[in-house]
Design a protein around this nucleic acid. Structure first.
Lengths: 329, 329
DNA sequence: AACAGAGTTTATAACGTTATAAATTTTCGT
DNA sequence: ACGAAAATTTATAACGTTATAAACTCTGTT
């Protein structure tokens, strides 16, 4: 026999107060006597009262839901280190829940944003892989819908973001390769519609300019290319003889594809080539041959994104929620 | 200026019908004249009417939410191949949304289940890593709360599951090692409270018994051991000289740790040792040296889990939702 | 023309919460 | 002890939906 779920009414009956009073008391409203608030809190605790989300949502219009839009190219470390875990951690105990809305391959990225805002399925939105004039950002700004992006844009109106310093990553990665004696260095970039394409490119080119080494930026492949395509590309790749060639790769799977392609050609890491990788998991700490890598803490990004969206929902300023995360060796 | 969200009332006014009639018409109730149903559907479409989830949830008691509980040890391939992506795919277009509830390290796994069922935050639950007499399963069965597990249990009352055939995986992996001439084979198992510990062990031991090779099952490490611990263990590991030793490893990160530990000792894959790995991502297709691996399609598990929970919610039988997924080379 | 019965539509209430405004009680200065 | 103001509590209505039961409108039979 299941005892019915306690509601405000139950608590009101137990305390002899009106439903309204109980509601206010539990919201800790200063209008209610401190004594009463304590009494109500105690009664609610005893009864195991938990507010009904659906009713609250219907009445207040707030969903208490944050939605994360994930795209299929997102590389994820184990769940414990993932952005989802970080976000969950940030939302824990706040009453906010996390829903995942996938970006399906081949469907416009604006679709989930439309869907969520039109039907008001969340109070805040988080998404990744921003473009220069990201239409999702534009739409949400027009609507005044709270959001934080993982990545920046070139749009005039500022917005909240938590971004990794890809410029610095690429610079340091390139410098490392140059310091190791590479006379020619290359970089695998994401598709050029993304803002982090530019950031990576700038950082890379800064190091190139400073040092005067030769640079190669392949155009027929990118970070999202399937591993086989990357493997083929690097199988045909002409290395400058005599000095090692360096490659910056800001993606683990891609780096693995490149490494396997080059070692399959019997090229030797350290003498024929060097690789500088962005790592988000423990993969490149365990990989042999070991390559130089710089860490991006994705769990931390998730936490940052979570804190930012919560801050915005509490009325925080956009300008206080623009973070650029430093690369860690 | 934002036009207010259309509700049943808006549609009722437009069609000149009562709110109740519109509601019934949109639910396609046979009580409403076919002609009227069409007219209402058309009007709703024109207005861009979408039912309010909060109101439906409050009135019907159904949340239209499926919750996936993820634990920190879950290994995830890229998002496109993940269980979450598979689940999303299965739920797409059904009106069900997916929420993620994490199992935090060090907190009882029953906590999120309690939280979700007590507050009725979902209509169905999906979770992984089942134990023999899993208390989550017991609780949900007592409550009559719909759920599907990724993994089986030893409990008397049958329940819905979608499981990978770990017995067969371990058998085939072990057979492969034996066929390659290993005279001694070992296996890295998950913590022994999980049911798939047994499945893996049985499959492994079946191959051992059939062939009469020596077997080793380390007890001071398991699949959840941190990579450094695994590396240390395999750094001290005494190999039988003369013939290669085989190791079955049902986890990618663990396999990587083992591989690096052994190659750091200058042991040679193929002569000193063989590794047979379970792969869920493209990691071990790209890894060098390349090892034998057997595929577990996690996206497919997600889809299967999704279809099963939907089927249960439509009144489907538990017995029709017990699937064991075959390993693929 | 009356009426049963099917076919169709509608009014009312309720799910659990909170905003608004009104009502009650207490406090305090005179 | 009185009244005004402050402090506290309460009644009412509403968010958008659907279940229940009642009301209306046809049809075809007598």
């Amino acid at each position: 026999m299941v005892r019915k779920k306690p509601t405000l009414k139950t608590v009101a009956e137990k305390t002899g107060l009106a439903v309204t009073t109980v509601s206010r008391a539990l919201l800790d409203s200063p209008q209610i006597a401190l004594e009463t608030r304590k009494r109500v809190a105690e009664a609610a605790r005893e009864l195991g009262y938990i507010p009904d989300r659906a009713a609250q949502r219907l009445r207040t219009g707030r969903t208490k839901v944050i939605s994360l839009i994930l795209d299929p190219h997102n590389e994820i470390p184990d769940f414990g280190r993932s952005m989802v875990a970080g976000l969950s951690y940030a939302l824990k105990g706040t009453g906010y829940h996390l829903t995942i809305t996938p970006d399906f391959e081949g469907e416009p990225t604006i679709d989930p944003v439309n869907y969520i805002t039109r039907n008001h399925l969340a109070d805040g939105l988080i998404f990744t892989r921003t473009e220069y004039f990201d239409e999702r950002v534009k739409l949400l700004q027009e609507l005044g819908f709270p959001f934080v992006t993982h990545g920046r844009t070139e749009l005039a109106t500022p917005h909240a973001y938590w971004d990794y310093d890809n410029e610095e990553f690429a610079y340091r990665a390139a410098r490392h390769l140059i310091d190791r004696g590479c006379q020619e260095i290359g970089i695998v970039l994401p598709p050029d519609r993304f803002t982090f394409y530019q950031h990576l490119r700038y950082g890379f080119m800064r190091a190139v300019r400073e040092s005067g080494v030769a640079s190669v930026i392949p155009v027929d492949i990118d970070l999202d290319s399937p591993p086989e395509v990357l493997r083929e590309h690097f199988a045909d790749w002409q290395l400058k003889p005599g000095t090692p060639t360096g490659i910056v790769c800001p993606g683990e799977t891609s780096a693995l594809a490149i490494s396997s392609s080059l070692t399959d050609r019997r090229l030797t890491p350290g003498t024929d080539f060097h690789l500088a990788v962005k790592r988000t998991s423990s993969l490149f700490e365990l990989h042999r041959p070991s390559y130089f890598s710089i860490y991006e803490n994705i769990f931390e990004s998730g936490r940052g994104l979570g804190h930012s969206i919560l801050n915005l929902l509490e009325g925080g300023e956009v300008s206080n929620n623009q973070t650029i995360q430093a690369p860690v060796m």
